[in-house]
């Protein structure tokens, strides 16, 4: 399992390929599920040009590691990788990557969903959206309302 916090743009697919080659043996998993989250350029009625992601880095890493450990207790998964940006992020750039490897697809799907869901509500990151008119802090993550807590 690995958790990376990055303050620069990254390619989720390059990270995925690099991690797979380094940490996983070809043939030892039958499923790899990934979630890639990006910054949208429109949030409700607010046009988003960029975002500042503030982070309590020591705690964020610990919280994400706990979430990945919890997922590994709930489902039979082989490995997981989480990469999360902080600092200044432009609209369209990748914000987060979650990848889970397992023998079978169901465990990988469920664990990946569990990790991103709990990351959004427990890992200490805060979004501040910017456009030409000004800036605003988001006071909650609302896009998963109505989704079960896994």
């Amino acid at each position: 399992m690995a958790v990376l916090l990055l303050d620069c743009a990254f390619s989720p697919y390059q990270h995925l390929e690099k991690y797979q080659k380094k940490q996983l043996r070809s043939g030892e998993y039958g499923a790899a599920v990934t979630f890639v989250g990006s910054v949208r350029d429109l949030h409700d009625d607010f046009s988003v040009q960029s975002m500042t992601i503030e982070c309590y880095d020591a705690m964020a890493k610990k919280e994400i590691e706990k979430i990945c450990d919890d997922a590994a207790c709930k489902w039979s998964i082989g490995d997981s990788l989480v990469v999360h940006r902080y600092g200044e992020v432009e609209a369209g750039e990748v914000l987060v990557l979650v990848a889970v490897w397992s023998l079978h697809r169901q465990a990988a799907f469920e664990a990946c969903r569990y990790i991103i869901h709990h990351l959004k509500y427990a890992a200490p990151f805060w979004k501040q959206e910017h456009n030409m008119q000004g800036s605003r802090w988001l006071d909650s993550n609302s896009d998963d309302k109505g989704v079960s807590q896994c």
Binding site: A60, V96, I116, L119, P124, F125, K127, S140, N141
Partner: peptide
Amino acid sequence: NYASFDARIMNGDEVAFFPPVTGG
């Protein structure tokens, strides 16, 4: 580590206050 407002503070602790998180 998340804590409650009645948690005891010990020598040298780091205490952080923050609004609801909005990452991911």
